[in-house]
Amino acid sequence: MEFVSPEGLRLDGRRPMEMRQIRGEVGAVSKADGSAIFEMGNTKVIAAVYGPREVQNRGQQMSDQALVRCEYSMANFSTGDRMRKPKGDRRSIEISLVIRQTMEACIMTHLMPRSQIDIFVQVLQADGGTRSACINAATLALADAGIPMRDLVTSCSAGYLNSTPLLDLNYIEDSAGGPDVTVGILSKLDKVTLLQMDAKLPMDIFENVMQLAVEGCKAIANYIREVLLENTKQLEHRRGI
């Protein structure tokens, strides 16, 4: 199948190096300590953060650092065909783990000993790249909850189809079976916290694809910074003296 037309356009009309429209919004869940909505094109994800709070299961309490938990789920209505999946299927367990590890790398857990932080992410609309969208939403929500972090983690995916590196794959491109590289970076520290690829790719091409994904991450980081700064300023203005 042709994923990049001879004119250099992708199925949804983007250029290969082009990202989908992104939108982030802080404060979507009223009862949570921090929450956010993040959209990448048609992919829409909501994240809620509770904590740091008392550890629910005493056995898991750690006296020197906080416990980070994460739960990823897909809403039944998020995909084209309405599927009733069991809650703990393998895919969502795996993604929960990935998100938890990525976020744990940036949260300064040693500042909140004997407590736990719960991150809940739910996919409202799935159109490829839910993993990256979830990480971006979780970052926004954690920052909103006032949890100390080393840096903002942002994530973006890139693929390689029709011998062209493509940024930010959508569902059709994602399910084409080509390589899909999901990268999560700490933009300020310039460190990679997440790198996933479930296909084979020659070294030199992989370098290019990953570089493209990193560029995407940086663009998202800039956007997230804008959203957060705007939000912080607004809160401070409102509060008054």
């Binding site: 904590g51 709070r53 300064m108 909103d144 909850a145 006032g146 080393r150 912080t232 401070e236």
Partner: peptide, 24 residues
């Protein structure tokens, strides 16, 4: 000196800290 929180920078003599809004 890098902030690890969202908030407002406060300075008291030599001390520099970030006062958070919306946190526990």
């Amino acid at each position: 000196v890098v902030a690890t929180l969202c908030g407002v920078v406060e300075r008291v003599n030599k001390l520099v800290y970030v006062r958070t809004l919306r946190a526990r």
